[in-house]
Design a protein around this nucleic acid. Structure first.
Length: 279
DNA sequence: CAACCCACCTGACTGC
DNA sequence: TGCAGTCAGGTGGGTT
């Protein structure tokens, strides 16, 4: 489900509900998702006040105050949802849904994490250990920061044998761009996803870097892309699906040149592109 | 090292 | 109606 815009949508949605509130209780329906859940460490969050909700790559980071300043790391995998109910204390909490795996109680708020495929994760760090947490080391450039530009793309793509689309999705180089936004960015920049990464000229890298940022920013503004699983903290859908130009539009006319959009499979992932205007 | 392939898991959908 | 096959937004580990 979630690429950078979806996680960012969850982050901005969660922030006003969580920051300034104190965790009163944590509940776990199981002790593992993709990896074991560090339940004992996470229980130390009880009584701590949330100080910030940030994002690194596709990880949501919940920061808390007090001794050691703990941090909960949340990954939504492919099908995770991070929903927040506004809770009246006189009303009993709702029944656990199918595939609901953990809950965070705060005064007036109930965070509910559901993830049918269980590719998501819940981890623990402290302000001091966050930078060396195994999930966060070796992560690449954030695409919406100024350091990401055509020169960056050009530099990291030299001597690469992979396609430009797989390079965009390689989290060791660049984070946050998944299968939807990789296809969309290539389309916007008029670059064929299958082009060898090293074949891109500096001008094409400039166009592609701009395209990545434009696509991600528009998707964030639209609240993300909802096809199947994605929903914001209020369980509402994102509206970027209607702005997609190629993703899941195979067989339909390209909005730029009218040629039929194609779907091919690269490295096991569906890729959507237009042979008419992507060179 | 880079590139590729697979696994992890469930649900939705398609075609027979 | 049922069943088999396919596919899905991510990512780490193993193999070439």
């Amino acid at each position: 489900m979630p690429e950078l815009p979806e996680v960012e949508t969850v982050r901005t949605g969660a922030e006003p509900h969580l920051v300034g509130r104190r965790v009163t209780e944590l509940e776990f329906a199981r002790d593992d998702l993709r990896w074991p859940i560090p339940i004992d460490e996470l229980r130390t969050l009880r009584g701590r006040t949330c100080t910030a909700v940030t994002r690194r790559s596709k990880y949501l980071l919940l920061h808390f105050g007090g001794r050691d300043r703990p941090v909960a790391l949340v990954h939504l995998g492919m099908s995770g949802r991070f929903a927040i109910d506004v809770q009246n204390r006189r009303v009993p909490p709702p029944e656990w849904r199918k595939h609901e795996h953990w809950r965070l109680h705060l005064p007036g708020r109930l965070v509910r994490y559901t993830d049918p495929r269980r590719f998501g994760a819940l981890g623990y760090a402290t302000a001091a250990t966050l930078a060396t947490h195994p999930w966060l080391t070796a992560l690449g450039q954030e695409p919406l920061e100024p350091e990401f530009d055509g020169a960056f793309l050009h530099r990291v793509s030299r001597r690469k044998k992979c396609s430009i689309k797989s390079l965009l999705m390689d989290g060791r180089l660049l984070v946050g761009v998944g299968n939807i936004y990789a296809s969309e960015s290539c389309w916007l920049a008029s670059v064929r996803p299958r082009r060898a990464a090293k074949s891109l000229k500096i001008k094409e890298c400039d166009a592609l870097a701009s395209a990545v940022q434009q696509v991600l920013r528009s998707a964030i503004a639209a609240g993300g892309t909802s096809f199947r699983d994605f929903a914001g903290v209020d369980e509402g859908a994102g509206y970027f699906a209607r702005e997609l130009n190629v993703y899941e539009r195979d067989g339909e006319a390209c909005r730029r040149c009218g040629v039929t959009v194609r779907r091919t499979v690269e490295v096991g992932r569906s890729t959507y592109w237009c042979a008419g205007c992507q060179v």
